[in-house]
Design a protein around this nucleic acid. Structure first.
Length: 727
RNA sequence: GGGCGAUUAGCUCAGUUGGUUAGAGCGUCUCGUUUACACCGAGAAGGCCAAAGGUUCGAAUCCUUUAUCGCCCACCA
């Protein structure tokens, strides 16, 4: 070894120290300005970060998501494209508000102790703190996001986009206000959409009984207390047992409440279930509401927003659960109860509060997904401006036509299946935190506008919008829409969206719905969904299990590069990922291996050769030289193909194999002899440098920190961040 | 009930359009350290690719059936 080399060995630590490296490297990148596409040239490539909720801190699942996206982004940037990856956070009204309510409860305070303004100040403070934590975590991971364009779903610009979107859809007739049975969360005191419901299996008792002794038909119910709201009994039209009664009407006194029951025939009733007769409670059951609509039956509300009975008599002001006991007792005392059986039933609960959903008729705002509207502006093949199309058809069309491509075909099937079952979307929420509905009332007048109406006496709707209404605008609002900004023109439609499969419906589908109807453009050209991260027992990470892993602790211990490559190494995107600290440990060793490969190469080559490394395949190569160069060509082709096909795990595996076994174990070992041979020395040095150069480039999207740190030693003009991808 | 998927080494998972002896990480075992890295090297053990049938010159891969497991959607009252 030369004297120079010994210096190099002394200069570089014998192992890679991620703690001493990562923050400085991130700062180097940020200061370079190359996260901002304004400083780049080439064909635009754009992607939006799915905005994390400002409900606290990020978990390992976010780290996975950001790693996948950062790999694509860095790869595209190295391909010489003008790459925009735009960061932001989501105000997530229900989630954030309920989080703050819980925090206040710990202080012994309630939401109602505050004015709307004071409460919102508390929420905003919490949201700001969460935001800061999240941004720090994202940076620690190495995500190469353009922070100069950072957005928030609840900032001024996004609020303007939301108001404009609402007004536009209202004018198109897509948004309407209607009195319908909706999902009411009695704990959160708000409506929620179908997507915010979680079904839970619970044991329940099903009671079979008659309304009164002289009523001809028995019915079954797990919620006998709602029967005071019944207006009909529905039977199947072909059910011979009940045919004779159809059309007849009866009066009865049920648990001290007078009821009037009409016998109707409806196809939706199952003959073989229970008694084959369904007590219809239009105000407190979605299905019954739909039956009632078909038969022009009245709505009879018997339960209020606090899940308490509103009828007179025995049940007055009782909670539904208590009322149930009372009704059952009453049925027994009247000798009307025929059967009582244990059943397992699916109960609808609120995703955020866990409360049992109470279907209630309420005046709310909806998006009509079935109504044909005149498509206002089109940049799509197959649909012209002015064509009549419904949102459902539109959502199907843009995927069927191939304008939006699902990288995983099975998720496309899931998407179509969801659209087929889609119902109108309830977008109003009775919570304080969120975008106010841009509608004002004065006596019987209604005004919808982007700004408040002029004149005295107008009151704005007190409701706020569903979180997905604003995040559904994410690709457009972040680029300045509704203004036709330069960013919007340059980067929209975005190239790709990469969220987890769990938000395919609430987010991906909603972005397609909102963006396409409003702008006539698709929001993104390609959808690539990823799985969720589970613990090493295959369980979801959750607070109640206490199995959460803090990405920052993992990064502190093993380094961000190790975490990144460990997460993507062994699983194809779309499948769930098992997080195992052992994997991260293994990849820390890999980062160290790369470090020592570089250390060996740098110690055994002359700086004078640094800039001649691109001179390939010199004369007089040894077998080992030829072998490693061939393998290097292979890994360049394979890595590129794998990334282009979104097989990130295979790209990572190919690189791991090459670097460790071909480059280090075989070639570096062979080079030790060759370096001693004067005839082979220069070739060997060139090949070592060339291999190192290419390996660092290929590895950069996966392990950006260690590769950029080592790149410094190659004394190149450009940062590795914006260096050319090898060919 | 409707839809989507999974089953490959002790564990966690790869395996692109079907193509020679099915791979990796971790773990296990043996040997090795004046040598860039012990966060290391050399080597080894370990799999009738869930089961049965079919298509094919050829199947982990395509088709059918079965079993087991998982996820999503859905208020059979």
């Amino acid at each position: 070894m030369t004297e120079n080399s010994n210096e190099k060995l002394d200069e570089m630590a014998s192992s890679y120290d991620s703690r001493a490296t990562e923050d400085a490297i991130y700062k180097l990148w940020e200061d370079s300005g190359f996260f901002n596409p304004d400083n780049l040239t080439g064909e635009p490539f754009s992607m939006m970060l799915p905005p994390p909720n400002v409900t606290g801190t990020l978990h390992i699942g976010h780290a996975y998501e950001e790693t996948l996206q950062d790999i694509v982004i860095r790869f595209q940037r190295m391909q010489g494209k003008k790459v925009l990856w735009l960061p932001g956070t989501d105000h997530a009204p229900i989630a954030t508000e309920s989080k703050v309510v819980k925090l206040l409860e710990k202080e012994g305070k309630r939401k109602t102790d505050f004015t709307r303004e004071d409460f919102l100040a508390r929420v905003n403070k919490f949201a700001q703190e969460s935001h800061d934590t999240i941004v720090n975590q994202v940076k620690k991971l190495g995500a190469s996001l353009d922070w100069s364009r950072e957005a928030y779903t609840f900032d001024e610009k996004r609020n303007f986009a939301v108001r404009t979107a609402f007004k536009t859809m209202y004018d198109l007739g897509l948004i309407y206000r209607g009195d319908r049975v909706i999902n009411w969360d009695p704990k959160g005191q708000t409506t929620i959409s179908d997507d915010e419901i979680v079904h839970e299996e619970r044991k329940a008792k099903m009671y079979t009984f008659k309304y009164s002794a002289d009523f001809p038909i028995s019915i079954s119910s797990t919620r006998p207390e709602t029967k005071v709201g019944d207006v009909a009994v529905a039977v199947h039209p072909a059910d011979d047992r009940y045919k004779q009664f159809v059309g007849k009407e009866y009066d009865a006194i049920f648990c001290e409440v007078p009821i009037h029951i009409k016998i109707i025939a409806d196809e939706s009733v199952e003959k073989d279930f229970g008694t084959g007769a369904l007590g219809v409670t239009p105000a407190h059951s979605m299905i019954d509401y739909e039956i009632a609509q078909r038969h022009n039956l009245p709505l009879k509300t018997v339960i209020n927003e606090f899940a308490k009975m509103t009828v007179e008599g025995l049940l007055k002001d009782k909670k539904t659960t208590d009322a149930r006991e009372i009704v059952v007792e009453w049925l027994r005392s009247q000798n009307l109860l025929e059967k009582e059986e244990e059943v397992v039933q699916n109960v609808s609960t609120s995703e955020r509060t866990g409360a049992v959903i109470e279907p209630l008729p309420k005046l709310q705002w909806f998006i009509d997904v079935n109504k044909d509207f005149a498509f206002p502006h089109s940049e799509l093949a197959g649909i012209k401006q002015g064509d009549a199309i419904s949102l459902k058809k539109l959502m199907r069309q843009v995927v069927e036509s191939g304008a939006i491509k699902f990288s995983q075909e099975n998720y496309q099937k899931v998407y179509f299946n969801w659209i087929n079952n889609l119902r109108d979307w309830c977008i109003s929420r009775q919570i304080w935190f969120g975008h106010r509905i841009p509608v004002w009332y004065k006596d019987s007048e209604i005004y919808c506008g982007i700004e408040a109406p002029t004149g005295e006496g107008w009151t704005q709707d007190s409701d706020t919008l569903d979180t997905w209404y604003s995040s559904g605008l994410w690709t457009t609002s972040t680029l300045g829409w509704p203004e036709q900004t330069k960013d919007f023109k340059t980067y929209h439609p975005t190239s790709l969206v990469m969220p987890g499969y769990e938000i395919l419906f609430p987010w991906v589908a909603r972005m397609i719905l909102m963006t396409t109807s409003l702008t006539g453009q698709i929001p993104f050209k390609e959808v690539l969904l990823h799985g969720i991260v589970r613990d090493n027992k295959g369980r979801k990470f959750s607070k109640s299990l206490g199995n959460g892993v803090d990405p920052l602790e993992i990064i502190e211990q093993y380094g961000a590069d190790a975490l990144r490559i460990a997460l993507i190494f062994s699983t194809a995107p779309g499948n769930d990922v098992i997080f195992d600290e052992q994997k991260v440990k293994g990849m820390k060793h890999f980062a160290n291996k790369i470090w020592n490969i570089a250390r060996f190469v740098l110690a055994n080559t002359d700086t004078a050769l640094m800039n001649t490394t691109s001179s390939r395949k010199p004369e007089g190569l040894t077998e080992a030289d030829k072998e490693v160069l061939a393998k290097l060509d292979e890994v360049v082709i394979a890595t590129t193909a794998h990334i282009e096909a979104s097989r990130f795990h295979e790209a990572a595996q190919a690189l791991y194999q090459f670097a460790w076994y071909e480059f280090a174990d075989k070639y570096i070992e062979a080079s030790k002899e060759q370096l001693l041979d004067a005839n082979q020395k220069e070739n060997t040095q060139k090949i070592l440098l060339y291999n190192l150069d290419v390996t660092l480039r290929l590895l950069h999207p996966f392990m950006p920190f260690v590769t950029e740190e080592l790149w410094k030693n190659l004394k190149k003009e450009k940062l590795l961040l914006i260096s050319e991808w090898p060919k």
